[in-house]
Amino acid sequence: MQDAILRKLFLGFIQIHILHHAAKAPFYGAWMIEELAHHGYDISAGTLYPILHNLEKADLLQTEKQVVEGKTRKYYCITQEGRQTLAAAKEKIAELTHEL
C-alpha cells in the first residue's frame, strides 16, 4: 500500500518537473529522461512517453517536430493551460513546504 501511494506522489512530482522544464524551453523525451535521472528518478521511455502523451491530451503540453541531424525529433512545449497548472502547483508546493 505504501509503495502505491509513493508511486502516485512521485508521478505527480515528475509531472510538475516536466511542466517546469517545458516552461523554460522545449525539450525532447530522451533529454527529459536524463534530466529526471539527475534528480533520482529512474524512468524508462516506456514510462515517460505515456506521461507526456497524457499531459498533451490534457492540453498542458503541445508538440513541435524539428529536424535535427537529418532525423525528426518531437519537442514538448508548455501551453497556456500548462503554465496556469504549473503556477497553481507551485503555490500548493510552497504552502506545503512552509507547513512542513
Results as ranks from 00 to 15, higher is better:
residue 89 A to N: 14
residue 81 E to D: 15
residue 66 Q to M: 07
residue 72 T to P: 00
residue 66 Q to I: 08
residue 72 T to A: 02
residue 86 L to A: 06
residue 68 V to Y: 06
residue 83 R to Y: 03
residue 64 E to A: 07
residue 65 K to C: 05
residue 62 Q to V: 02
residue 90 K to W: 05
residue 86 L to N: 09
residue 66 Q to C: 09
residue 69 E to M: 10
residue 66 Q to T: 04
residue 76 Y to R: 06
residue 61 L to A: 02
residue 57 K to Y: 07
residue 74 K to N: 09
residue 64 E to G: 07
residue 75 Y to H: 07
residue 55 L to Q: 00
residue 66 Q to Y: 07
residue 91 E to S: 13
residue 80 Q to W: 11
residue 69 E to W: 03
residue 61 L to F: 02
residue 85 T to G: 06
residue 54 N to T: 12
residue 62 Q to C: 06
residue 90 K to T: 00
residue 73 R to Q: 11
residue 56 E to C: 08
residue 78 I to R: 10
residue 77 C to N: 11
residue 91 E to M: 11
residue 85 T to I: 10
residue 56 E to A: 10
residue 54 N to Q: 13
residue 63 T to D: 06
residue 86 L to T: 15
residue 80 Q to K: 14
residue 64 E to Y: 00
residue 79 T to C: 05
residue 85 T to V: 13
residue 89 A to G: 10
residue 89 A to Q: 15
residue 69 E to D: 11
residue 91 E to P: 00
residue 69 E to H: 09
residue 88 A to W: 09
residue 64 E to T: 09
residue 64 E to L: 08
residue 82 G to W: 03
residue 80 Q to A: 14
residue 54 N to W: 01
residue 54 N to H: 11
residue 76 Y to I: 07
residue 58 A to I: 06
residue 64 E to H: 03
residue 75 Y to L: 12
residue 87 A to C: 04
residue 57 K to H: 11
residue 60 L to Q: 09
residue 66 Q to K: 15
residue 63 T to M: 10
residue 81 E to R: 05
residue 73 R to S: 05
residue 75 Y to E: 03
residue 67 V to K: 14
residue 63 T to R: 15
residue 71 K to S: 01
residue 89 A to W: 14
residue 58 A to D: 14
residue 75 Y to P: 05
residue 74 K to G: 02
residue 69 E to T: 08
residue 84 Q to R: 14
residue 70 G to Y: 01
residue 76 Y to S: 07
residue 78 I to M: 10
residue 62 Q to K: 10
residue 57 K to E: 11
residue 84 Q to V: 03
residue 66 Q to R: 15
residue 64 E to P: 01
residue 67 V to W: 06
residue 84 Q to C: 10
residue 79 T to Y: 04
residue 66 Q to L: 13
residue 55 L to F: 00
residue 82 G to L: 09
residue 81 E to Y: 03
residue 71 K to V: 01
residue 62 Q to G: 02
residue 78 I to K: 08
residue 74 K to Q: 13
residue 57 K to F: 07
residue 89 A to T: 12
residue 74 K to Y: 08
